[in-house]
Design a protein around this nucleic acid. Structure first.
Lengths: 142, 142
DNA sequence: GGTTGACTTCGAGTGCGCTCGAACTTCTAC
DNA sequence: GTAGAAGTTCGAGCGCACTCGAAGTCAACC
């Protein structure tokens, strides 16, 4: 590997890159979700690939419904060292199962939603037939 | 259709049936998500199929990420009469698109999560080879 | 008809996950 | 060197979606 003096990104650059606001990046660090981010000479944070990767993974956990509290527990495990890997696998596997269940539920809801929309569309079609004043073409936007 | 004097369900029975707490059922009614639920002679709510169906649909909307505020707007449309059906189709279709996007994101996250778990499992396998004390069989439960 | 438990209203409280603001410091560009 | 943008800490505030509690009323069963 090449030796590079990775200068890292400023907090705002990191925010843009990860899609997480600067406020939230500081908040995550404050509550221990993110280990201490390296600082430049003046005390400003510098986000390297390591931090950015961590943020991306945290974002995955959040977006898949893990609570901040549970994320903290998971991060604590990682800090305890390699001997907690079995527990981490356990936690992630359990979370994976919840995610699969969530996907199943959402897919079911999607089908129900399609059904409902279909019913409404059917009502529109009938209304059209019995109502000469009704619009024939699809509504474009709100 | 047979004439039945549908006595309906008590609020607690409705709660069990729909998976929504009695507190929340009253809350939904209070904020106008649920039209006035019919009452028995003593003023207690009686939930009929109409109300239960409405609750189920509201639950679908909530679980697929619609805000209470947006649900209120949708419900207001239904109260305005059949001429709002095009708008309702529009709202539901837009919500459907968000749901599809959400599903795509969650599926992506599921794959990433599987990848991460795989990496951890790989680390476990290696540790096992160099650590005679490590368990050989899969961990079953927490 | 009495007791026990479920129901009523209404306002207040809770937990979560940010999000903001003030007061100050540092960096960047000219 | 200086102006203005971007960074810092810290506590407080916010919006959401419930959730609870008090004080009273009603229903169901013995």
């Amino acid at each position: 590997m090449a030796i590079v003096t990775d200068p890292g990104l400023s907090i705002e650059e990191a925010a843009v890159r990860t899609g997480v606001s600067a406020h939230t990046l500081r908040y995550y660090e404050r509550i221990g979700l993110l280990a201490e981010v390296p600082r430049g000479p003046g005390g400003h944070r510098r986000y390297t690939d390591a931090e950015l990767g961590a943020v991306v993974f945290l974002t995955l956990l959040r977006q898949t419904g893990m609570s901040i509290r549970d994320m903290q527990r998971f991060v604590d495990l990682t800090r305890e060292g390699d001997h907690t890997i079995p527990q981490r696998v356990e936690v992630l596997s359990e979370h994976r199962e919840q995610l699969v269940a969530q996907l199943a539920l959402l897919n079911k809801h999607l089908r129900a939603l399609d059904h409902k929309i279909g019913i409404y569309r059917g009502m529109l079609g009938e209304a059209e037939a019995s109502d000469p004043g009704a619009p024939t073409k699809e509504k474009k936007d709100a």
